[in-house]
Simulated assay, not measured.
Amino acid sequence: MSNLERDPVEVLSPPDEATGAGIVVFDAREVPLGGPRAMPVRRTLPQRGRTTIGAWCFIDHYGPDEVETTGGMVVPPHPHTGLQTVSWLFAGEIEHRDSTGVHERVRPGGVNLMTAGRGISHSEVSTPDTTRLHGVQLWVALPEGSRRVAPFFERADTVAVELDDATVRVFAGELAGPDGAPTTDAAASPITTFTPLLGAQVDLPPGGSVEFPLDPGFEHGVLVDAGPVGVGLPDAGVRVDVAWSQLAVLEPGPTRVRLAAGEEPARVIVLGGRPFTEQLVMWWNFIGRSHEEIVEFRRRWQSDVIDRNDPDGPFGTVTGYDGAPLPAPGLPSVRLKPRP
């Protein structure tokens, strides 16, 4: 998914008051995802007070949206550098095309991962049969040693795992058991990651709960798709209620987490990873390390793709999309600063 804001200067909002030791809750901000009817998405990363959870650096949460009303998802070819995109759906179907020649469908229960590396372009369009669209789009920052890899695409189906009252689907990394190994073979994802990560969907019935181990070296985030959900740290005796579309962030240290549904079914996305210590410059759909690097990424996209000076350049060509690629917005008048 692209950041389609015409003026993508980061809008910063403070976190909600920390409601429990070791847990901070963040609200989302609504962003229109382009198009004449502008499908809305809710963005919880990045923002003030939290720019990453491990290497996870971008979270857009959308739906459930009736396509007849919102127009669905129509994202023209656009570029990425220095990151991986992770597409995960609860409902609907999205057609993905990219400049490596991949043409795939994103469907519920399957994870689509696109590694941009040194440069890729892709389009995303909800399919004609999709009446309701609902999911999350996630970005992972690539570390210095991997951010210039050749672009590639992977797709993998996930397997539902029963854990306490919950149904869990792991789409990135692994859900560790008490001995540090995956709880089952199905609790580990085969997709390629370049830093230790966890990404999982957890569903709970009304009144249900689940408790599972955490890697104490990880930061974790709990994004509520259906709730509210109680998020607790049993060892610390801390519990907070997290509302729909809010993001609860857990700093490193806890070894267990407990999730509890209320009177309604609950669904959360659990993200985790070791703290990402490299500074990032993140603007529009590019991740780099300096202002000058972002300026060059933008110049190449505008020159090679928009002005068609080199269709075989680093961003390539998306074939099969009926329409023009997305021009980059203008750069801000001030230097882009790294995010710690």
Score class of each variant (00 low, 15 high):
L250P: 04
E264F: 15
V159L: 08
S290T: 15
G49M: 09
D185Y: 00
L259F: 07
G109T: 00
S121I: 01
S333F: 01
T51R: 13
L113E: 08
V257N: 02
V31P: 11
L214Y: 05
F218Q: 13
A324L: 11
V281A: 02
Q47K: 13
D185E: 12
R105Q: 11
D203Y: 04
M39R: 02
W244P: 07
R300F: 02
V268T: 12
A38M: 11
A248M: 00
P79C: 10
F153E: 12
P338K: 00
W244R: 13
R48P: 14
L113C: 14
R97V: 05
A55I: 08
E162R: 08
A28Q: 01
T158S: 14
A226W: 06
I120Q: 10
L271R: 08
P32W: 08
R118M: 08
P332R: 08
R147W: 06
E95F: 00
S87P: 00
E144F: 05
S333C: 04
A18N: 03
G49Y: 13
N112M: 07
P77E: 07
V238Q: 01
V242G: 12
V305Y: 03
P196C: 09
F90I: 10
R42Y: 05
L280G: 06
F90V: 07
G145E: 08
V102L: 10
D165N: 04
G49F: 06
T158R: 12
G232S: 09
T167W: 00
G237I: 06
E10I: 15
V222G: 00
R148T: 14
A28N: 06
W301I: 00
G316H: 06
H78C: 05
E293H: 05
R6L: 14
G109Y: 11
P325K: 02
G54E: 13
G217R: 15
P206F: 05
H122K: 01
Q279L: 05
T277G: 15
P205V: 09
H61S: 09
D65Q: 12
L138P: 10
W56F: 12
P46V: 01
E66D: 13
W88G: 02
A141M: 14
P340F: 12
H96R: 15
V170Q: 03
G101E: 08
S126W: 05
W139P: 02
